[in-house]
Simulated scan of single mutants.
Amino acid sequence: MINDNVFNGTFQNLSQKNMPFEQVFLNILQFMEKDPTGNFKLMFGTDSQVYSRETKFITGIVIQQERKGVWACFRKVILPRKMENLHERISYETTLTEEVVSLFTEDKKEQLIQIVLPNIYKGASLTIEGHIDIGSGERNKTRIFVKEMISRMNSIGLKAKIKPDSFVASCYANRFTK
């Protein structure tokens, strides 16, 4: 799916570069283990920016503990062409999100669940969301793709969020596409 020339298989954030996925997962585990009684949201989302000779895609992973902070990282994929078809671009953004989510195998998800499970009676929780950079507003050109993309997110077990609630795609990832 992804050509090695445009994606080197690593993630980054403002303080760490070239993180393999195993390091990303370890950072998420450590973040959650600091306070296993927290309310956690693991969120994924992709945004893109079309340039004259390429299209840049950024997929973000954000683990948030309500009112306590976040840890986040992203991966960058650059296609060496101008992707102007809106449906193709939104669909590819969703595909890239699905690919990152697929790195969280059942075993890895189980490890995350085991952090909060002993603490659910103390209010601990974990939700997993897929953020899509589309909106259903009357003037939004992407509204015709909402049902399709939401069902793709739901089919892989994610709670789908669209604008204005899809901040991992529309804010975090968007920031790094520029």
Rank of each mutant, 00 (worst) to 15 (best):
M1A: 15
I2V: 06
I2W: 06
I2Q: 03
N3I: 08
N8C: 11
T10H: 12
N18M: 11
N18Y: 09
M19E: 03
M19W: 03
F21K: 03
Q23C: 11
V24R: 02
V24G: 01
F25V: 03
N27Q: 12
I28L: 09
L29V: 15
L29Q: 10
L29T: 00
Q30P: 03
F31P: 01
P36W: 13
G38E: 04
F40V: 14
F40E: 01
M43L: 13
T46N: 08
D47W: 11
V50R: 05
Y51E: 02
S52I: 12
R53L: 12
R53G: 07
T55S: 10
T55I: 07
F57R: 00
I58N: 00
T59I: 12
I61S: 05
I63R: 03
K68E: 11
G69Y: 14
W71G: 00
W71Y: 04
A72T: 06
I78F: 06
L79H: 09
R81H: 10
K82Y: 12
M83D: 02
M83G: 04
H87A: 11
E88R: 09
E93P: 15
T94N: 02
T94F: 00
E98K: 10
V101L: 10
S102Y: 04
L103Y: 14
L103D: 02
D107Y: 07
K109T: 01
Q111R: 14
Q111N: 10
Q111G: 04
L112G: 09
V116D: 03
L117T: 06
I120P: 12
Y121Q: 13
K122M: 14
G123H: 04
G123A: 04
A124E: 03
I128E: 09
H131N: 07
I132V: 14
S136G: 13
G137H: 04
N140L: 08
T142W: 08
R143N: 07
V146F: 05
V146R: 12
K147Q: 11
K147G: 00
M149R: 11
M149S: 08
R152H: 15
R152V: 10
N154W: 03
S155T: 08
A160P: 06
A160T: 03
P164A: 09
P164I: 13
D165L: 13
S170M: 13
C171S: 14
Y172T: 00
N174S: 13
T177A: 07
T177Q: 05
T177D: 04
